[in-house]
Design a protein around this nucleic acid. Structure first.
Lengths: 172, 172
DNA sequence: CCGAATTGTTTTAAGCCTAAAATGTTTTCC
DNA sequence: GGAAAACATTTTAGGCTTAAAACAATTCGG
């Protein structure tokens, strides 16, 4: 089990002869644990949203984005913020307009663009849900000390930056 | 902006008169960051799997579970491990049997149970993909030091435990 | 032994999600 | 001005996902 180059930066990885396949088991385990945590919490939140408010998580997430943007957002903005595909947003918005939570209009200055906003109803319902949602999250993370929270924030920021760089390396 | 009880453990929260709504903004930010990291990495892995191997992430994940279980698993086992619904696994397995990656048979001792295994083809293809997958993960986490990785592992373990307790409190 | 719970799986109905192609609009740049 | 590139959104086709109900087989308690 060769674990020699665990910490080396290997700036010349391009030209290096790869004879000893590196051991990335730790990173793999970390990724699986990260995924487990997210899946666990996401499932819990999804279930509570459905039970308490009969709303789906994606609908809640979309409304959360709009609640932070009183002047509305374009579909593209929403799509980028939520990190989901464009087509996904189209359908989600359709259903939320249908149910009276969203208002959608074509931009005056650019007829390609659709601007969406929360309706009065949408905003009221979201605020009500968000207040309770926040307590769920607090409860789910209850065993972490404030120091743990800070430290996790720091390390996840580093993780995000690392992943973004890696993604950019592939798709420049 | 009241932030007084930031660190108190509040063991008597049951009987406490809740006059000052607590501030859980930090936990909320932490959750959003956790979600962002996972979504980012998951999307990257999904795209690479599709591009390089024309395989979906759920198929890969299911094969990963089976690769660790040479004697096969029941559908329930898979469902629990992957933290997805039973019905989800049914369809996933159907398609993987169809494509020749999985073998499925009814248990001899309990006719309710379906045992699934990787076929020779399934195992070979998975191993080929897994080797490359591991390097992607390593690259995505490349900017984290070994110490960062250890620390993240520790904090995520704590997070998982916390979330599980919270979930158990609700659904005992 | 037999009815009642429990367990494992599938079905159903609805919604979510993606990648890729198609459509319509605006900008860019000769 | 007009072709080409870029942009915003929708459509399409297919797969994923869930919650809840239905079905089938086993186990448990009297």
């Amino acid at each position: 089990m060769p674990a020699e180059s665990d910490c080396t930066e290997m700036l010349d990885s391009e030209t290096k002869a790869v004879e000893t396949p590196e051991d990335h088991a730790d990173e793999l385990r970390l990724w699986l644990r990260l995924l487990t945590c997210t899946t666990l919490i996401e499932g819990e939140v999804r279930g509570r949203l459905r039970q308490r408010f009969d709303v789906t998580l994606p609908r809640f997430d979309l409304m959360a984005q709009l609640d932070k943007a009183p002047d509305g957002m374009t579909l593209s903005d929403v799509s980028k913020r939520m990190m989901v595909s464009n087509g996904n947003v189209t359908g989600l918005v359709e259903r939320l307009v249908e149910s009276g939570h969203l208002d959608r209009r074509t931009s005056e200055t650019d007829r390609r663009v659709q601007v969406i906003r929360l309706t009065k109803l949408g905003r009221a319902e979201f605020r009500r849900m968000a207040a309770e949602h926040e307590t769920w999250i607090a409860d789910l993370f209850a065993e972490l000390s404030p120091k743990d929270v800070r430290e996790l924030m720091r390390l996840l920021a580093k993780t995000k930056a690392s992943a973004q760089k890696s993604a950019a390396r592939r798709r420049p």
